[in-house]
Each structure stands twice: as C-alpha cells, then as structure tokens.
Nucleic acid binder design. Structure first.
Lengths: 227, 227
DNA sequence: TTCATACTTCGATCATAACCGAAGCATGAA
DNA sequence: TTCATGCTTCGGTTATGATCGAAGTATGAA
C-alpha cells in the first residue's frame, strides 16, 4: 500500500555511516564547516560535499555561507529529535558502533581532531597545562594565563601571529575516546603544528593518526608531565 | 569514528523501500505473515525472507511461529513511534510517495498509529482531555489526573488492567498529518480498543484507516468536545 | 597581480546488497 | 506414504551509490 510519507528516503540518508557520523556530530547544535564534517566522518572533501548536498536537498541540514566557508547545521529541532529517538532505539537494542580495527589503538593514543591534537595525548596535554595554571577555565571559555604565555613562547610559538587570526585562541573540544576536554582553537592548532616542526610527530597519510617518534614522545612527556 | 549508538544501522534498515513498505504496513498494529508482507512490498518470498530476518535480528520486528506461518509485528511501541516521527519529518519536507490515493483524506481524519488513535481524531481526543484537565502535561511526561481516572472509568475502561502491564500508561506521540501531539501508551491503546468494542469504529482491512460509523462519530464528538 | 584555501563538479572504480531462480527444509493434509 | 504450502538457504546477476583523483570555481590574503 503506497500511502503516506516516504520514510525510506530519510532512512537511507541516515543509513549511510558517513552521513550518520556527520549528523551525529551536528547534534551538538554547533554549525560546522564542510571540511570539519569531512574530517569527522573520515572521508575526503569531495565525498563530503556530495553527502552534504543530499542532506540539504532533503531538508535535514541548512547551510550558511560565510566567506570561503560553508557552515552546516541541523535544519531544526525535529531533525535532532528524530536522531535522538533513533539513538535511543539503537542503544536499547545494543547497536553500538563497531570500533575494531588495527588503526584503532593508534587513533585513541593521538590523532588530529580537524586541526588540533586529540586522543590520550591531546587530553594529557590539556590536563597538564591546566594543572600548572597555564590555562584557566571559566565555564565554557578557556584563557591562556600570563605564565601560559611564557610557556608556549619557550616552546617556540609566536603568539602574536596566532592572535591575528579571527579564530579564538583557545577553545575546548570534547574527545570521543577519552570523553574529556582537550584544547582546540588557534593555540591548539599552533601547538600541533609546532610538534610537526620540531620533528616530534608526523601525520600518517590518509588517516587521522598522529605518530610520535620515540624522541618526540620523550620530549612531549617531559614537556607535559602528568598532573 | 564516533562513540555512541549506531543510528546508521537502523537508518539503513528503514532506508530500503521494500523494508520501509513492510514496516509501514505493520504500523496497522496487526501481525502479518511473511507472504503477506512480501506481496505488500512487491517482492518475492525469498527476498522478503532476507529482509524480515534482518529486521528481526536488529530488533525492529518480532516473529511468532504458528503452524506453517510466521507472523511478524513491530517489536514494540518505540519502533512505531520512531516510524511515525520519520513520517512526520518526511511529510513536512514534502517527501511523499508517488501514489497518494483516494484514501489519503480518510488517513488524515483517523488512523491507527501502531496501536492507538492518530490523525485529526487522535489529536482532538488528546486536546479535549487536556482542556478538561483529564490529562496533565509535565514536560515530556503525561499523567492521568484523578478526574481523568473517573472519566475513562465511565467510558468502560478497566484501569487496573492497563496498569498491570509494564507499558507506561500515558505517552505522547507526534502526529505526522496534524503535526501535533496525540495520546499513546497503554491508555491510548485501551481507548481505541474500547471504541471498537462500543461499535463506534472499525478498522478498514489492509489499511491504517479507522472508519467511524455515523453514530460512533456522534458519540465521539459528544465525548470529546472541542476545547 | 599571485597564491592559498574552501568547496564543488566530473569521471571512473569498486563494493555492497537487493533481487530472483532453484533447491531444500518443515509443517500439515490426504 | 505422498503431495502441497510456507518459508529459508544458496548461488549468481545486476544496479545502486559511496568513494576518490583530477580539475574547476569562488573567496580571501599577500
């Protein structure tokens, strides 16, 4: 009986893992750029672009152009509610995401979260800097203290350059593997870039894994002692 | 690469047109055999068998063997509510199936939503009961008030029986055609069953339409006056 | 201007899964 | 027993769509 609305269309849109990842990420309510969503879903920009346009045409996402960026967000509350309902059902049935793969342990240890360090190392760095009062938390906001400015300066980071960009210097980001906060923002990006420059670590091609050299690992642990 | 429930699995299951047809058909609340569902979806028995086993493994359907037949039904209310929510979103976005037949107006007027009354009449009943303080809303939760207990008692509903079940007595459900709340839960089911028993209405075979007799319609309007 | 970034479009590859024919199993009837 | 029905399993075909490389467009920065 072909009566009523077409749920298969919406189902198939949510049914693709890459799109489901994007939608889940957007459940935070924050609008994200196409590249951020691509990184989150673990796909290239081309593929993400195709997915995002499908989701927008179907009315699940809205798009806002801002300069070179395109920010995507869930179209409205109803979409969020539907996703929430699906998560509820999935959780009840025990359908958790499969997370078994050879790359997985490396991903949990250290990976890029769009442009900054995440995973165990990302959280460790953040905690260590907070413990030594280099970073101060005020609610959602995070500030670099005066001592912190000295610290990152010694590391060889040019703060004035970072402050020139319109991005906030410090932002918090929630880690899916650790379920704790790590450092994002211009400083988060700056620190990771500095680790690359210092030769402590490098990106694994075609993956989000950040691989530390043994020397780099030693220096990193020295630099960010556990609290 | 995210933590949390796997909505993609459920989405992809609902996302196949053949399976979506089967699930929509089962929204009538009646258990149907594998062959009936195959015919409904327009596929062969082999293909249907494969679909049905996937849906059962995922926990969306339950199966009951009876002789040579296998009867399938939606696993529980939550599945029905999710499907209804998806229909709501699809309808709002204009994603209707190609063939919207003459039965459509009847569907909007009164239909079963898995096991309770939906459509114009479902919303009217809910609104009327809220307006007279028979039902009280507290955020997402809905309660039957003391006056409400008296009211449904007069209608001939045995509350103790309903309360024995583990299902919540009252739950809200979003209506895709009216875009408003109607009553689900054990009481929602109980009320619809009572309308059948009283001869006010009956199900149209092979459809979700609930057809009221002219006498039944009169009594229903009397019983649930518009606010 | 030139260069870099952010994103899209095109084209081709490739993996998944929907599908059905044929055969097999289980139940019930004759 | 034999036959019919309801459903499942197996095997092979086919269509869909997810993916990425390469190239193109648009915006902003130098």
């Amino acid at each position: 009986m072909k009566e009523g609305p077409d749920i298969a269309l919406i189902g198939s849109l949510i049914g693709d893992p890459a799109r489901a990842n994007m939608l889940t990420t957007l459940m935070t309510g924050k609008a994200l750029t196409a590249s951020e969503l691509a990184a989150e879903a673990g796909i290239t920009a081309q593929t993400a672009s195709s997915h995002l346009s499908k989701l927008e045409v179907a009315g699940l996402l809205t798009q806002r152009k801002q300069g070179r960026h395109r920010y995507f967000a869930l179209a409205d509350d109803e979409v969020g509610n539907l996703l929430e309902a699906m998560m509820g059902l999935a959780a009840k049935r025990g359908h958790m995401r499969a997370r078994t793969g050879p790359r997985d342990p490396a991903l949990r240890k250290a990976r890029v979260c769009y442009n900054h360090l995440a995973g165990d190392y990302g959280v460790r760095m953040f905690d260590s800097m907070v413990a030594r009062d280099f970073l101060a938390e005020e609610g959602e906001e995070i500030f670099l203290t005066e001592e912190g400015e000295g610290f990152v300066g010694e590391l060889g980071i040019a703060l004035p350059d970072l402050e020139k960009s319109r991005r906030p210097l410090c932002r918090s980001c929630l880690d899916w593997s650790e379920r704790r906060t790590h450092l994002a923002g211009a400083l988060g990006t700056g620190l990771l870039d500095r680790f690359y420059d210092l030769g402590w670590a490098h990106r694994i091609e075609g993956s989000r894994v950040v691989s530390f050299t043994s020397e780099g690992e030693r220096r990193f642990r020295e630099c960010f002692p556990e609290a």
